[in-house]
Amino acid sequence: MEKRVIFRGWLLPICLVAPQLIISIIFFFYPAAQAVWQSLFIPDPFGLSSQYVGLGNFEYLLGDKYYRASFLTTAVFSVLVTFCSMIPALLLAVCADRLIKSSGIYSTLLIWPYAVAPAVAGVLWMFMFNTRVGIVSWYLGQLGYDWNHVLNGGEAMGLVVIASAWGRISYNFLFFFAALQSVPKSLIEASAIDGAHFWRRFFDIVLPLITPTAFFLLVVNVVYSFFETFGVIHTITAGGPQQATTILVYKVFSDGFVGQDLGSSSAQSVILLVVVGLLTVIQFKYIEKRVHY
């Protein structure tokens, strides 16, 4: 896709792209290259010199049981966040789609959580489940369930999953709702005349038509839970207990800034980079496909 009509000159356009180019190089390409470079070294404890170790950092990481555990944690976490945010969103969108007249009010109310920062969402949920003052944990206590996400890894995971999924419900709702609105009503009416009841219509006609949106959301939500949930984890659990909620991004941060292990942290960044790259490729492949759907 190219314009036929263009302006002449080369100095002006170069000046126009210069700001973005300079910022990208200084704050993007240089740091990314540094990450790759540093991943090949182990700095000495005083940070005075570093020793070239080739792929040693990567070998070490892949053999490290904590790192492998973090990979598994991330996988579990992102699958749970994706499903806990997509399924309620789909249900709400299906309902909103039926309520044509009042769907606007519900949408306005439902998009609130999107505006709440993940870190703030973390504080809100932590407050509700706080072991000392939390109202939900108190009522659970009354029911005889002793909630303690500070000590119990499974409960900690559950809490960060809910807090992360919460804000995403709004996002997914908006996309599902838009997709449902664009399903041709004539198709639905035709099958209604044929006697198909609501759920039959939903599974046979609506669901196949909104699969592209669902798949798009799947990828976007996985990317979200990989990176943008840092705030939730840092505010609620700080990766604990016993690293039960240390997802990969959190480990890059805690090894790099708290543990000052730059070589390992950089190697982790590079691995993450590959993971994001793969996800992006999947996303683009799918977008291509959707055109022919």
Binding site: F27, F28, Y30, P31, A32, Q34, A35, Q38, F227, E228, F230, V249, V252, F253, G256, F257, L262, S265, S266, S269, L272, L273, V276, G277, T280
Partner: peptide
């Protein structure tokens, strides 16, 4: 393709 979280230390 690269969110800021991935390159925090060098940035």
């Amino acid at each position: 393709m690269l969110p800021v979280e991935v390159r925090i230390v060098p940035t």
